[in-house]
Write a protein that binds this DNA or RNA. Sequence first.
DNA 1: AATGAATGAGAGTTCATTCAT
DNA 2: CATGAATGAACTCTCATTCAT
Lengths: 192, 192, 192, 192
Amino acid sequence: MDQIANKKVLILESALELIRENGFHGCPISQVAKQASVAAGSVYTYFESKDEMILELYRYVKLVVLEEIREKDDPEKNFEARFFDFWNNLTSLYREKPAFQSFLDQFTSSPYNTDTVQLEDDPWGRWTEAFFRAGVESGQLRPLNPKILSIMVMGSAISLIRYTTYFKAKTASASKDLHLIPKMVWDGIKFQ
Amino acid sequence: MDQIANKKVLILESALELIRENGFHGCPISQVAKQASVAAGSVYTYFESKDEMILELYRYVKLVVLEEIREKDDPEKNFEARFFDFWNNLTSLYREKPAFQSFLDQFTSSPYNTDTVQLEDDPWGRWTEAFFRAGVESGQLRPLNPKILSIMVMGSAISLIRYTTYFKAKTASASKDLHLIPKMVWDGIKFQ
Amino acid sequence: MDQIANKKVLILESALELIRENGFHGCPISQVAKQASVAAGSVYTYFESKDEMILELYRYVKLVVLEEIREKDDPEKNFEARFFDFWNNLTSLYREKPAFQSFLDQFTSSPYNTDTVQLEDDPWGRWTEAFFRAGVESGQLRPLNPKILSIMVMGSAISLIRYTTYFKAKTASASKDLHLIPKMVWDGIKFQ
Amino acid sequence: MDQIANKKVLILESALELIRENGFHGCPISQVAKQASVAAGSVYTYFESKDEMILELYRYVKLVVLEEIREKDDPEKNFEARFFDFWNNLTSLYREKPAFQSFLDQFTSSPYNTDTVQLEDDPWGRWTEAFFRAGVESGQLRPLNPKILSIMVMGSAISLIRYTTYFKAKTASASKDLHLIPKMVWDGIKFQ
DNA sequence: AATGAATGAGAGTTCATTCAT
DNA sequence: CATGAATGAACTCTCATTCAT
């Protein structure tokens, strides 16, 4: 990775961390710059505007997630095994890098997430769709639109992580059963 | 409802609508006040600060959701029927009042959602927990912690609505299968 | 004049003075506010933006000029006398309030002076046109378009004042003949 | 012209065009450099500072004007003919190179135009003064200080051009009489 | 000489909050 | 109680200038 890409990533990671800690409100460019050890003005060497920086951060985070998940997927395994790998890898990733999950969550429900953004090329979206399509075509998943399956699975997974992240205070008592959720999800989507 | 409560609600609804349209960024007190037909300063007669207003809005929205869902629940029915009612009522409510879902989503992933907030008395949380406990005790749901069941169900439902709301552009092709999701969820949580 | 109009004028006069001293570059809102003894943010209570403030200043200055000149014009006199009054009053006014002349000069040659601005209602422009039309109709001026006469006269007058203002250093030696200019201008426009 | 002078001129012309289009505000060094196809930093190889660049531009523009006007003047003609040549050449030049007139106008009324600047050697000022002195000495102009005559003539000419440039929207109706202005000016200054 | 990334002071502007009316 | 003008800190963004390459 060259120098320029390095600085860009440095700034993005700085923004990511600040957004996790304080939300979009709490990541003024001045702070982003300071945490990335650059001058405030320098951010504008790499990004046209703060909005554009946030959008690039969105693309960046989804790419990193894709790389991590794809590299740990083994297409040789049968689909049930791949599914539980997928679930575990995704929840582990988000637990290890809570800023990723927090940012994606905030971004999704924010006004940044416009129609234009959704229509951009989305390698992560394409990969997950292909993943669930493989499950359907192997006969191990219900014969449904892979997007639907993706919605259901990702929804449960993200909701689980949100719960354990945001509602730490509440879920303490329930934590011993949390590992049962992937089994339940699988029972919901598998070919009966 | 007396005059004061009325004005409070007027201000809260005004904020709610602005947050849906523009996010937390896009709801300055001046706008909230204008849309509620009061002076900016008057907001501070009813709320200590903007933050406190947002918190009260969170409590308010959850209360309204609880009322709507509880009143349409019929505890006399068998649990499977109650489950599908619950699913339909919740998704209908969020579709009819998108500002509710949008606000809850943004709030949950925002820094407003502190530990302190989560530890507050939460009638909506208590009700859903009791709802799923009834399912378990009737023998129709897996014998799991009702919180876990709640997480899984609400996660899928919210994820579905988020998808149809935020990702309108993408789900067009998948929409005909969307009504299958509750069946899948039920298959995941029912006693096998 | 009420309080609000007073504050507006205070801010406008402050901007006017700063522009005379330092040009458009040298009148940051922070300075304008400080000189008007208000907070920086307060300027935006009275004006939508800095640009809008400059435009209002343009309208304001032209109105004041119009009032001063019109009130000292005596339509009962013959036109030659009115002409020399007009010349003297205008040059006196600009000499007494150099900020007026300096601002109008800078504004005219600046990008603020868009087509849209020129097409606004312009009482000062209407008055001067009517003034010279009266001269033509009385038979004392050449039978020309009053706008042309206006251009020629105002051009000479303004150029004279610019010279004495900006080029103080150069005109010292010529100053004893400066009072001859109005006579020359009159000889140029009078009916021969 | 050597390489260095060439680049200087390239940068000056770039600044000139930007100032015409957007005023002093709208000519950041970065733009000037880009339009001149050099790096931003390189401007500082040729000019000490932006201010110094503007001052050199002023000198440059006046020199070009002088060259153009002087070369088209024929001292053998009688002064009346030379006067109308001068008028036509000057107005043509400004009409063909509106950036010249626009820049001179903006510069003259700006804070760049300090006493120090006015006291610099000024070949264009010297030439015009000599021009009008010749008219006086030939007996064809009123026996006045040539500076005064210069003020009056240049004022009318510039005012005419400003009008046709800045106030395009207003002068449409008057345009057919515009060519009468030089005759009027001549009648004002000629020996009666 | 030429480059252009980096700087950081300072610009215009917003907005939560206060308080005299 | 209600008002909304006033505040000023904090925001995003620009740009003249520098300097390592």
